[in-house]
Structure formats: C-alpha cells, structure tokens
Amino acid sequence: MLSVNTVAEIEFELREEIGQEGRNSKVFRSFDQALDAELVIKRVNKNSVADADALFDEARLLYKSTHPYVVPINYACQDNDFIYLAMPYFPDGSLAQLMEQRFLTVREIIKFTCQFVSGLHNIHSKGLIHFDIKPDNILLSHRGEALLSDFGLAKHTNSLGLARPNQMYVKQQPPECFSANEYTTAFDVYQVGLTLYRMCVGNEEFNRQFMSYVVADTFDRARFANALRSEAFPNRTAYPEHIPEKLKQTITKCLKSSPDNRFTAVLEITNALSSIDEKLLDWQFELNGNQKKWSKEFNGAIKYIAIDNGNSIAKRVPSTGKETNINQYCINNIGVRDLKRFFKI
C-alpha cells in the first residue's frame, strides 16, 4: 500500500545572494546537483508568520499560474527554519537592472509590457491579484522576453472580486490605498501604468520625484497621499520628448485616481499600445548631465540629435565615409515641435 506522504531529500548549494525581498526572505543564485542546473532559490524565514504552511502560498500560486510570461516554479521544500522556493535562473536579470544600464526604446517598452501583461491577464483570469508589479519583479528570459515574477503578495479575490495584500510598498500604492481596505484588479492596472511610466522616464527620475516627499529623513505620508489623489505624482509632464502621445495617454488612463476611470482589464492596455507610430519606436535616448541625445539606425547609417542648453547638433553618420550635419536641425534654442519633426524624418 502506498504511503500518504513521501519525504525525500533535496540538495542545493546557495552560491550568491542576489536580492532581498522584505525582512523575512532572501534570494540566492543556487546550484542543484541532481538537476545539474543553476536556479534561483527564494529562502523565506518560517518565523515571519504564525502559520508556516502559509509560506507555501506563493509556490502554490506560481504553480497554478503556468503561462509563457509568468516565471515558473521548479519545486518548493523546507527545513526546520526556512521555506525554499526554486525557480529558473535568468542571467539577464530584471527589467529594473536593464533600466539601470540605459533608457529603453519605445519598441522595447511596448514589447515588454505586452508580454508581462499577458501573464498578468492569465492570473487575473484565475481570480488572483498580483499586488506587486514593478520593474524589479519582471525578469528577462534568455530570449529577451519579459516574465512576471514574485507572487509573494498575490491574493485570491472573494465573491465580490476584492482582495487585500498582507503588506504594500508605498512607492507603488495607488490612491485608493488611503481610503479603502480591499481592492480590485484596478490595483494591478495602476501598477502596470506606474511600471510603464518608469520605463519611459527612467528610475532615476522616478526616484527623484518620490524622494521629494521625504524631508529630513521623514516621509510625508499625508502630502504623498494628496499627490496621488490629485494625480500630481508621478509627474505626467516629465516624459522625454520622443515618448509618443498615445503611450502617454495609455499611462495616464492607468494612473487615474479613481479605479473606475482606469482600464477595466489589463488586455485593454496592450490594445491601446498597438497603433503607435512606427517612426517613434526605435530612438535610443541618452541623458548625460544637461545633454539629451537621441540616436537611431536608418538605412545603414546612424542619425542622431544632441541638445545641450537648448542648442542642437544633428548628424548623419554612415557606416563608411564622412559624417554630415543635418543642417535644418542644427538650431539654437530648438523647439519641441522641431524635435518631434526630426524623430519622424
């Protein structure tokens, strides 16, 4: 007769700590000898909750959320002190890490959003709210695809479509967090919009805005709440000039103060992004001190425009031969209209 439960050993080596998710868990690059594979192990302290079995909730949610754009779980196990969740190791890291290296092109922003939002739609269809969507929790596969990860705050909705996470991170809170105790999938829609916003303006600008609510090492919660309700945070006018209007409009709708005024389903976000002008997709933006620069490959050459203190230099750099000025865009005090015309030539 088969036993009800079988207990077996799993052996892995924790090689390098690569992250910390709250006070009670750490993330390690690890190696599983039996699988001959590098993995990521999330180690959760059992002392962090009264019911240690509840720490397996994230593993259960990941297992139930199998989807091409959701990070899968390999296995879950425990010892006397910790719960261990094993997931694939993605050497390219997270979307946040890529954003630390450079600004994303509009094409990348749209591609990555459509991918992880597809995974998010899948978990919404199973009655779950993620509650923790941010660039750190979007991992990049070896194929360069954006996969949604970290279901540590995810919760099942009740019969009214409502749920509440055990905790929230203030940078990502939508306005309703200051007036309600339970939330709908509109919470995730807001966080998708905030992630899109961060992809457009960069983490440095986003963090600069957030830190303006910290005075003398004290976070001004009341002022921050008012800024969310009035839609003053994040700053809807801080976009680099190449960001298309349709992308900005999509973000604005995601970030509406009232949940009822946001997209009703996350797939509506991908539909809204589908018709952005092709000529605006591939500009690579750089910011070096006061200088802004945009470059793009075009018919075997590189076109670029650099602006410093309002004065612009525009050039065409062929793969062979001499670079030439694009004289009509070498302008003192160049205006936004001229710059946007340059993006479309």
Rank of each mutant, 00 (worst) to 15 (best):
F90V: 06
N327H: 11
D136L: 01
S179T: 15
P72Y: 12
G321N: 05
R208D: 15
I133R: 02
S230R: 14
E231R: 15
S258V: 12
F82H: 13
V71I: 15
P68I: 13
I41R: 02
Q284H: 07
S319T: 00
N327C: 11
L160K: 14
V44D: 05
Y84R: 10
K344R: 14
A34P: 06
T195C: 08
L128G: 11
N299I: 09
K315Q: 14
Y89V: 15
F103L: 02
Q33N: 02
L148Y: 00
A272H: 01
K171I: 10
T113F: 00
K296H: 05
V27E: 06
A227H: 05
M99R: 11
P88Q: 06
G300R: 07
I302G: 02
I10R: 13
L104H: 09
S149T: 08
R236L: 13
A163N: 06
A301S: 12
T157F: 10
D136F: 02
A86H: 04
A222D: 11
L281V: 09
P165K: 09
A306W: 08
D81H: 12
R23F: 10
E145G: 11
Y169G: 07
F28V: 02
T270M: 07
R208Y: 00
G300P: 06
D81A: 09
S258F: 14
S149V: 12
T252H: 14
I123L: 15
K256E: 05
T157C: 08
I123G: 12
S48D: 10
A96H: 13
P318I: 01
N299Y: 03
K134A: 12
E176R: 03
I41K: 00
L85F: 05
I73V: 15
L35Y: 04
K42P: 00
G202Q: 04
F263E: 01
L247V: 13
L196I: 01
K126Q: 12
M87S: 13
D92K: 15
I302N: 04
L273G: 03
R221L: 14
G321M: 05
F178C: 02
E297G: 14
S30C: 08
K296A: 11
N24K: 05
L39V: 04
N207K: 04
P72D: 12
K171G: 09
I243S: 01
S65I: 03
D220L: 12
N332D: 11
F285E: 13
D51S: 11
A52P: 05
S295C: 03
V215L: 10
F219Y: 08
L148C: 04
Y89G: 14
V106K: 00
A54T: 14
I331W: 10
A86M: 09
L148H: 00
H242D: 06
I243K: 01
I276D: 04
R143F: 10
N332R: 12
F233M: 14
I110P: 08
S94A: 01
P259F: 10
A54L: 13
Y190H: 02
E16D: 00
D277G: 10
N5L: 08
